[in-house]
């Protein structure tokens, strides 16, 4: 950074735009507050005092317009799948999806004979992070969010997101 070094004492920090935007985005993974089944209980527990998701800047938002991350926590029934898809479409770019638990990953316990269950939410929306478990513990969800942070930090901001 040569010429500008030490010109403004310590009040100015020089970085690239990519890094700045990615840093701020990854530090505020606001997730969409909705749960579909038992996995949602673990998600709530992750958000509550003991695991405290907010220390990672992740807090629940009740509107898709304000959310950056959709955590699909639970069984995606075919009836709900149409709604999940619409809610995903209503979220503003850049947006990410975490598929939490076996149900959202692959249909889980309903993968056979589950006449009403979608076998994996990735059939209708693109998924960034898969978290295994039935249900995954809050620690697993936190790890998923941290992986997502890493993914966000490595992304060129102005490039178009591929679907």
């Amino acid at each position: 950074m040569g010429a500008l070094n030490h010109k403004f004492n310590e009040n100015i920090l020089i970085t690239s735009l990519d890094k700045l935007l990615n840093w701020s985005r990854s530090g505020s993974e606001w997730y969409f507050q909705f749960g579909l089944a038992c996995c949602a209980i673990e998600m709530m527990s992750a958000a509550a005092a003991r695991h405290d998701l907010e220390r990672f800047g992740a807090m629940p938002r009740s509107s898709p317009r304000q959310a950056d991350v959709m955590i699909v926590a639970g069984t995606v029934t075919l009836k709900m799948a149409t709604r999940v898809k619409r809610l995903y479409e209503q979220m503003a770019e850049p947006k990410y999806v975490i598929s939490m638990g076996s149900c959202a990953n692959s249909g889980g316990p309903y993968w056979q004979h589950g006449y009403h269950v979608l076998k994996g939410v990735d059939q209708i929306i693109p998924v960034d992070i898969y978290i295994p478990g039935c249900p995954p513990r809050p620690e697993a969800l936190i790890e998923g969010l941290l992986h997502l942070q890493k993914k966000m930090r490595e992304e060129p901001v102005l490039a178009k997101k591929e679907d």
Partner: peptide, 20 residues
């Protein structure tokens, strides 16, 4: 009517595949 013993699940529902 899915809980009937003679129910055969459809292949697709609104374009979503039902059985894996």
């Amino acid at each position: 009517y899915p809980l009937r013993k003679d129910y055969v699940p459809a292949e697709f529902y609104r374009g979503m595949r039902i059985e894996k």
